[in-house]
């Protein structure tokens, strides 16, 4: 960061100096006369141009200096917040993933889902509860199933880069989403949980020989 600021400042100074030299050279080239041959008015005009450049530099260099000081002395955490804000922009509302009625599948039984999603690991590296490490997420969804509501499965594919809800714009483009949705008596989708993201087939890699292990 410091070297970048120094580079910008140096570049600015060099350009200003070059501009001054060019102006003086251009003045003499156009007039084709020596300095003592110029009239008082021409001398004044030439000096005024030079003065304007000096004033311009005098007025603008503090901006560069302020920029350099900010980069140098602003706590690193402020810069990190700034750069994070630039890189992980919040997605617009209309890019958020939503479950639509046409994505819905059959009605599911809560008990059957809990039985089917029990996680078992011989090394005890996951809790032996429905959805394992994601159990809390399941409890949250199950808590949304009020009187008259029912649980349905859903599935849909998303190919656009900004359709995923968790803000990593390069991770989940082109995936098949599937999960569970809580639907109320009026058929409205009250809540949903994506339980599976599967990559859609892509043709990124060129066709080549494949060997089964």
């Amino acid at each position: 960061m410091a070297s970048l600021t120094l580079f910008c400042f140096s570049l600015y100074a060099v350009f200003t100096a070059l501009a001054c030299i060019y102006c003086a050279y251009d003045e003499l080239k156009q007039s084709r006369v020596k300095w003592h041959e110029l009239s008082l008015r021409e001398k004044g005009a030439s000096l005024f141009k030079g003065l304007c450049l000096v004033v311009f530099f005098a007025l603008t260099w503090p901006i560069i200096l302020v920029f350099a000081l900010v980069q140098e002395f602003l706590p690193e955490r402020f810069l990190r917040v700034f750069y994070r804000g630039k890189m992980f922009k919040t997605e617009p509302e209309d890019h958020q993933f939503v479950v639509l009625p046409e994505h819905l599948g059959g009605v599911l039984d809560v008990g059957a889902i809990e039985q089917a999603s029990l996680v078992h690991d011989p090394l005890d590296s996951a809790p032996a509860v429905p959805f394992g490490h994601l159990h809390i997420r399941w409890l949250e969804l199950r808590g949304q199933i009020k009187q008259g509501c029912h649980l349905r499965e859903f599935s849909c594919s998303y190919r656009q880069a900004f359709d995923q809800p968790w803000g990593m714009p390069f991770s989940f483009a082109g995936h098949q989403y599937a999960g569970l949705a809580v639907v109320n008596a009026e058929g409205q989708i009250v809540s949903h949980w994506v339980t599976s993201v599967l990559p859609l087939p892509d043709n990124h890699f060129r066709s080549s020989q494949q060997v089964a292990l």
């Binding site: 968790w166 803000g167 989940f172 599976s196």
Partner: peptide
């Protein structure tokens, strides 16, 4: 990243390099 996606939240990982977003 799949876990974070399914959990619906992602820890605020610090990063200081464009090769490790």
């Amino acid at each position: 990243e799949y876990y974070f996606g399914l959990a619906g939240k992602r820890p605020n990982f610090d990063f200081n390099c464009t090769a490790l977003y």
